[in-house]
């Protein structure tokens, strides 16, 4: 069982977490574009292999955070709280 390092709770088994999908732009910044662009924002996700930025949630403590994961090697590279990209999680 993979270990994921929660920025608040430390390394925990993956079972304690919920995967929240890829990190996406703020809808407030996208809502004024064309219909087709909005549909793309709502329905499409990036399937390219590489380092993904993902939302993860530690269920017992209710903590949302961002994890960067290389989805080719399935290795988590780093984790940090939303908005704290400048410091290491």
């Amino acid at each position: 069982m993979k270990i994921l390092n929660c920025p608040i709770n430390g390394p925990r088994p993956l079972q304690e977490f919920h995967f929240g999908g890829e990190l996406r732009p703020n809808p407030l910044d996208r809502k004024d574009g064309a219909d087709a662009d909005w549909a793309d924002y709502v329905f499409n996700r990036d399937g390219e292999p590489g380092v993904k930025r993902e939302w993860w949630y530690h269920i017992p403590s209710g903590t949302w955070f961002i994890a960067e994961r290389d989805n080719v090697t399935d290795q988590f590279q780093r984790t940090y709280l939303y908005g704290a990209e400048q410091t290491d999680g």
């Binding site: 709770n9 925990r12 079972q15 304690e16 530690h58 269920i59 017992p60 403590s61």
Partner: peptide
Amino acid sequence: AIFTRVAGVSCA
């Protein structure tokens, strides 16, 4: 305190 799961239930 440790926030984790015990027998599938979230506990502190």
